[in-house]
């Protein structure tokens, strides 16, 4: 047990997997000597050498495309895309090949590729450095999509993602990179399980990544007003743990989904639909969503007004309470 930041926890997870499996590789832009623009790969090249931890040329499509080839040759690539907004040059390789190779080869070729992508806003970054691309990936069959909310989750989920036989898109919440938490370095996680991070009775807040912490803050604020909110961290969007979500909402009868990505066709719509399909009769109010607006991620000076905040979350909670 140690207090680690999310950056350190992810670094530990990578170190662990590089040690355990000599066929694990870490590569991407600036991950070697620099240790990554967020230092997630700090010290790994020193420890494991330039053959296993290396800088690539500046080419995202090549990073993912070559990861596919490396996986076909029996290696286990963990590649980094430097920022959410730069995952798009690789989207063709991800959608056309990474996601479909297993099927196209009738299950003969597995691609245990992990793509780590620092995601989301809240750090005052320039253009293309604050986006939440989870829906593009969740909509692509054949990919798993994982979004840890903090250091302990990050550590366990990254180890599980690397060990997973399928390609995993691993979305790291940038604004949580420097949060500290106890991390149990022995525990390896499992993909596809949501977690109740706070129990409550009046309504359920559902989130992943950085918004989990925001929802916990909202729940604390609500408690001051005598309202007990349950908070569920999805942890993995694909596969989605519908059972845990619907059990929670069956209990509270009300749900608000919170995400940074825009509203329209955001993953909140999927969760809302699943709840309606599974526990329609238990719902005491429509499932509401508090999300980013339907605009390109805005400039740094005004991003706080774009990201869901306590007022917007609590307003939605009030609405489901009053319904």
């Amino acid at each position: 047990m140690a207090q680690l930041t999310l950056v350190q926890a992810l670094n530990e997870a990578l170190r662990h997997e590089l040690r355990e499996d000599p066929r694990t590789l870490v590569f991407g832009e600036d991950v070697g000597r620099l240790g990554g623009v967020f230092r997630v790969t700090d010290g790994l090249q020193e420890e494991f050498g330039e053959r296993r931890v290396f800088d690539t040329p500046l080419a995202e499509s090549a990073i993912v495309g070559s990861a596919i080839g490396l996986a076909l040759a029996g290696w286990r690539p963990v590649c980094e895309i430097q920022f959410d907004g730069f995952s798009y040059p690789a989207l063709d390789q991800v959608i056309t090949n990474l996601a479909k190779y297993r099927g196209r080869t009738r299950g003969r070729a597995a691609l245990p590729v992990t793509i780590r992508i620092p995601s989301g806003g809240g750090i005052g970054g320039p253009e293309h450095h604050g986006e939440s691309p989870e829906t593009y990936y969740a909509h692509t069959a054949g990919l798993k999509v994982v979004a840890p909310s903090g250091p302990a989750e990050g550590y366990q989920l990254l180890r599980a993602a690397i060990r997973d036989p399928d390609p995993v898109i691993f979305l790291e919440p940038k604004s949580r990179y420097w949060t500290k938490e106890e991390v149990d370095a022995a525990a390896a996680g499992r993909l596809g399980q949501a977690r109740i991070v706070r129990e409550g009775t009046h309504a359920t807040l559902i989130a992943w990544g950085a918004m989990t912490a925001r929802c916990l803050q909202a729940a604390e604020a609500a408690a001051e007003d005598g309202v007990e909110l349950e908070v569920v961290d999805c942890r993995s969007l694909v596969p989605l743990d519908v059972d845990t979500l619907s059990a929670s909402v069956r209990k509270t009868g009300r749900a608000v989904v919170v995400h940074e990505a825009p509203l329209t066709a955001g993953f909140g719509a999927e969760i809302s639909a699943r709840l309606m399909e599974t526990i329609f009769r238990d719902l005491k109010a429509p499932v509401l969503r508090v999300t980013g607006y339907d605009i390109p991620y805005p400039a740094a000076a005004v991003e706080a007004a774009y990201l869901p905040d306590l007022d917007r979350i609590l307003t939605a909670v009030q609405k489901v309470l009053d319904y």
Partner: peptide, 11 residues
């Protein structure tokens, strides 16, 4: 230099 990556790593 491209951030920390020298030109010899690009081409």
């Amino acid at each position: 230099w491209a951030i920390s990556v020298p030109v010899a790593r690009q081409t």
